[in-house]
Computed example of a mutant assay.
Amino acid sequence: MDRIRVLFICCHNSGRSQIAEAFLARFGQNRFEVHSAGTDPTAVEPLVVQVMNEVDCDLRDKTATNVRDLLRDNAPYQYVITTAGPNGLHDMPTLPAETVRLDWAFPDPEYVTGSLEQRLAATRAIRDDIRTQVIRFLHDF
């Protein structure tokens, strides 16, 4: 049986989409081929690496990927899920008609403010909310 192809997208591929990719890969029981990308990729956010390490997900060697490269160089994805919400992405490439697009809106860990402890707490909350949404997504399969 072919695995279901899922692509998570956010603006920079520096946090939310990386978290979602890691959780779907972990909880998906090998039923999914999962990737993440950004419309304007940058480096993975260090706080995201730290809070994901707390739940045994190592993102230290992850790099940000450009969504155009993934869509151009790979077979179509059955699901494309934006983690920045429906209005959070600019310049999104056109998707094939058969692709299911879902919009999940999470705050961007890159923009959390406050002391280090406050930023870690906010990033942990984002991580946990994304994990919950990924688990909800899995209930449909």
Rank of each mutant, 00 (worst) to 15 (best):
V67N: 04
R5V: 01
E54M: 05
A125F: 05
T65H: 13
A43G: 10
Q78E: 12
H12R: 15
T132R: 15
F27H: 12
S14D: 01
T65F: 09
I135M: 14
Y79S: 02
S36F: 02
R60S: 15
F8D: 01
M92W: 03
A20I: 04
R5E: 01
N53H: 14
A122Q: 15
M52A: 01
C57D: 10
I130P: 11
E21L: 04
R127W: 06
N87Q: 11
P86S: 08
N13H: 14
Y77K: 14
I126E: 11
L89G: 02
T82V: 05
N53T: 07
D103Q: 03
S17G: 04
I135W: 06
P107W: 04
M52R: 02
L89W: 07
F141K: 12
D108L: 05
E117W: 09
V44N: 10
D91C: 14
N30D: 15
V80K: 14
V6M: 06
A25R: 12
L120C: 08
A37M: 00
A84M: 00
I126C: 07
E33R: 10
C11K: 15
D69F: 07
I135G: 05
G38M: 09
S36C: 03
F141E: 12
H139F: 03
Y111G: 12
F137D: 11
T113W: 13
G114F: 08
F106V: 00
N53Q: 13
L95A: 01
L95V: 01
D61S: 13
A125G: 12
I4V: 15
N13C: 02
N13A: 04
L120V: 13
L71V: 00
T113D: 13
L120F: 09
P93G: 00
R60P: 08
D61P: 05
T39R: 09
T65Q: 13
G15N: 08
M52Q: 09
R16G: 07
H139S: 11
F141Q: 10
V55R: 11
C10A: 07
E54D: 15
R131P: 10
R127S: 06
T113V: 14
R16C: 08
E33T: 13
A37G: 02
R16D: 09
A43Y: 15
H90W: 12
T99Q: 14
L102K: 12
T39P: 12
P86R: 12
T39M: 09
D56N: 15
L102T: 05
A105K: 06
Q118H: 11
R136E: 14
Y79W: 13
S36V: 01
Q50P: 08
A64W: 07
F23L: 11
G28R: 08
D2H: 15
I81K: 13
E33G: 06
G28V: 00
N66D: 14
S36G: 00
G114D: 10
V134Y: 10
V112Q: 15
N13E: 07
F32A: 01
D69M: 08
N53I: 00
L95D: 06
L47S: 10
T65G: 07
A37R: 04
A84W: 09
E98K: 00
T113S: 14
T39G: 06
P76M: 03
D73G: 02
N30Y: 08
Q50K: 15
T63F: 10
D2F: 12
V44Y: 09
N74P: 06
P41Q: 04
L59G: 02
I19V: 09
A20L: 11
D140P: 05
P107R: 07
E54R: 14
